[in-house]
């Protein structure tokens, strides 16, 4: 996983609450392999109507190449589909700023090097208002300092300290777990004696 330290880019602003993972990647696009890429299908039904593409903040040329998205509360709620994160990442997004996130979404995001940055509702509104004025000018996110700088506006964000370390270092969890093999074996031995009923029968 690529480490994430700072992101500097224009932001896509979606002033909506509860952008769920069904919207981020509609279920009908989830049959493809990761190698085929999910980027074109990010927020597909927001970007396309029955008669083809429609005007929307994602495809605004002023924020082309954006690596940052700003939204309202409960971003990524709903389905556990990691494809929602793939769609964001493949589109080029490295950080989503919102007042709250779906738990499974955040977990999936960090595993793919995408930063879910939590700001207060007031700061989210301030950023949304500021970006409307600054349209297309880059903002800067510093993970180590947990800070977002958008012109004159500077707001702090929170992130779980464990996730912060993981993102900064680009750690691979599986290697970390395989190093725990002796502890797992020991747990297993003790557990089988104390919970014999936990083994599936039949």
């Amino acid at each position: 996983m690529t480490p994430l330290t700072t992101v500097e880019s224009p932001a896509v602003v979606l002033p909506m609450a509860g952008i769920d993972t069904d919207q981020l990647i509609p279920a009908r696009f989830m049959r493809r392999s990761r190698a085929e890429g999910y980027g074109p299908y990010l927020l597909h039904d927001l970007r396309n109507g029955p008669d083809g593409p429609r005007s929307n903040p994602l495809d605004d040329p002023a924020v082309a190449g954006s690596q940052v998205m700003i939204a309202r509360r409960n971003f990524g709620c709903g389905s556990s589909r990691e494809a929602a994160v793939y769609a964001l990442a493949d589109f080029g997004i490295r950080c989503v700023i919102a007042p709250s996130f779906g738990d499974i979404f955040s977990q999936n995001a960090v595993k793919n090097g995408l930063l879910p940055a939590i700001v207060s509702e007031e700061d989210a509104e301030a950023l949304i208002a500021a970006e409307a004025m600054r349209r297309g000018q880059p903002l800067r996110i510093d993970l180590a300092a947990q800070q977002i700088v958008a012109g004159n506006l500077v707001v702090p964000f929170s992130i779980d300290p464990v996730w912060k370390t993981q993102l900064l270092n680009g750690w691979d969890e599986i290697d970390m777990t395989l190093a725990e093999a002796p502890a797992i074996a020991k747990f297993r031995e003790r557990d089988q004696a104390t919970r014999p009923w936990a083994v599936p029968q039949g």
Partner: peptide, 19 residues
């Protein structure tokens, strides 16, 4: 519920890192 990376982690180790 878990995402695909965690599904892969469970398949490979039968464990998960959790807070």
């Amino acid at each position: 519920g878990i995402g695909a990376s965690e599904v892969a982690h469970v398949l490979m180790t039968q464990t998960l890192w959790q807070k």
